[in-house]
């Protein structure tokens, strides 16, 4: 069994339901994401179009994150999921340097690396990943890509020639496919990106972006302090800085 994902970008309407469902299901802290939906505007006014691309871990068959992890915190499951054991993670961030898709974040609450696990905990119990359940247009398809009769395999067969993965040149063999993507959707260097610019609002840049999830001393003291379980520290206005246009 090899579990895989497919997103049909023709169907995705950018509602971010999957993004929110993932946040809730996995208690992903602010400033971090396991899944995000990126908006891209193409062309020049008035002749423009907007596309939406959900981005998550690809659960690569040849995963550089697994290879570089010094303590096997990142490891393969038999069903093909690249899982993470954050009890073992030492927080070296090697995986963040290795993942070509930027799919890993350093959890500011646990001080360990984390990422999409294809909801391994739900899959184990026979449930679908939270993001799949939340998608109102069934743009996210999840299943066994080694089973030719599965919905995902059938979908890939039906759209062959129009199925892509991100950065195939990295030889990671992603098990996450896109239908209806183009270079500008899937290649981060193929579009312009202006930091601080957001569609609906000014982007609030948290100071916690970048490395200082904790100061160095805090990392040593963390085990002796009570664990902060909510996102309050990120919501205090003095910890945020306004940016954008």
């Amino acid at each position: 069994m090899k579990l895989g994902f497919l997103v049909d970008l023709h169907l995705c309407m950018g509602c971010k339901g999957c993004e929110v469902a993932c946040k809730v299901e996995n208690e992903v802290p602010l400033s971090s994401w396991r899944l995000r939906v990126k908006y891209l505007d193409r062309g020049v006014f008035p002749d423009t179009s907007r596309s939406f691309t959900p981005l998550r871990c690809n659960h690569c068959e040849n995963a550089p994150c697994e290879r570089i992890c010094p303590v096997s915190a990142l490891h393969y499951l038999d069903n093909g999921i690249v899982n993470i054991d954050n009890e073992r993670c030492i927080g070296c961030a090697g995986c963040m340097m290795a993942c070509p898709y930027g799919a890993i974040y350093m959890d500011p609450e646990t001080n360990t690396a984390d990422k999409c696990t294809y909801c391994a905990h739900r899959v184990e119990g026979g449930l679908l990943p939270a993001c799949v359940v939340a998608c109102p247009v069934e743009a996210n398809i999840f299943g066994d890509i080694e089973d030719d009769t599965s919905h995902i395999s059938q979908y890939i067969m039906a759209h062959k020639g129009n199925v892509q993965v991100r950065k195939p040149e990295k030889h990671t063999n992603p098990k996450h496919y896109y239908v209806g993507g183009g270079t500008s959707s899937l290649d981060p260097l193929a579009h312009e990106r202006i930091e601080g610019y957001g569609l609906f609002n000014n982007i609030t840049h948290l100071k916690t972006n970048g490395d200082p999830h904790h100061g160095i001393i805090d990392r040593f003291l963390a085990p002796f302090k009570s664990h902060e379980k909510d996102n309050k520290s990120f919501m205090q206005s003095d910890k945020t800085e306004k940016g954008g246009h």
Partner: peptide
């Protein structure tokens, strides 16, 4: 093509 909505980049780790 221009990114119009996305998360902030993680910066230098």
């Amino acid at each position: 093509s221009l990114v119009t909505l996305d998360v902030a980049l993680p910066g230098i780790i």
